[in-house]
């Protein structure tokens, strides 16, 4: 199956052309954030403070990597379940977040927020943490260092394999895939 190369930060016009099921290779910077970092970011926004990194046009990767072994920027670094960030995602999408990388289903509210923002939700392969680690070129903590694995990192990836799970029209690959392969009865 053919994969399309995409450069990060994403180009809005390129995102508009993506469709659920497209296979891509992502290269460039992403910001890592999962449960605890999302909670802090949204609390900061609620207090009227700035986020620790510029959100507009950026991509967040839901990941908490393993500690780096010698000679590597990170250890295993596969996606975590995105649904736990659903409470926070619409707010970040309204502020310009353009891409999310994770795994697992999203709420209807997030799906609608993706459509409204012209954004995209990519899936990386859950449980392929070692393989994904080999796509990471560098990683530096940019905020919330005390959170350990949950700190926000600027991570530069090269040819990270992903699939479009929810596209800017709102089509959802999980729904399409399950209906295609379900055996009724």
């Amino acid at each position: 199956m053919e994969r399309v190369k995409l450069t990060l930060p994403l180009d809005r016009a390129a995102v508009a052309g993506l469709r659920a099921g497209d296979l891509v290779l992502l290269s460039g910077p992403v910001f890592t954030a999962r449960d605890a970092a999302h909670k802090r970011m949204v609390e900061a926004l609620d207090r009227g403070e700035e986020l620790p990194f510029p959100l507009d046009g950026q991509t967040i990767y839901y990941v908490g990597p393993c500690p780096a072994p010698p000679g590597r920027p990170v250890g295993s670094a596969g996606p975590t379940t995105s649904g736990r960030m659903d409470r926070y995602a619409p707010k970040l999408l309204r502020l310009g977040l353009l891409g999310m990388i994770g795994k697992g289903k999203r709420t209807e509210e997030v799906r609608q927020a993706i459509v409204d923002a012209g954004a995209v939700y990519f899936g990386a392969t859950g449980g392929a943490g070692a393989l994904i680690a080999t796509c990471v070129e560098s990683a530096e903590v940019v905020a919330y260092e005390d959170l350990g694995t949950e700190a926000v990192r600027r991570m530069v990836v090269k040819d990270l394999p992903a699939v479009v799970l929810i596209d800017p029209t709102g089509a959802d690959l999980y729904r399409i895939g399950r209906e295609r392969w379900r055996i009724p009865g």
Partner: peptide, 30 residues
């Protein structure tokens, strides 16, 4: 039989073999 499914399973086999070879953990959720 699903092309997406087959590709993903092949990726998981490759991931397990890479972990065995390099000492990286199979999944970051250890």
């Amino acid at each position: 039989p699903s092309p997406y499914g087959r590709a993903l399973l092949e990726e998981l086999v490759e991931n397990a073999d890479l972990a065995r070879r390099t000492g990286l953990s199979i999944c970051q959720d250890t």
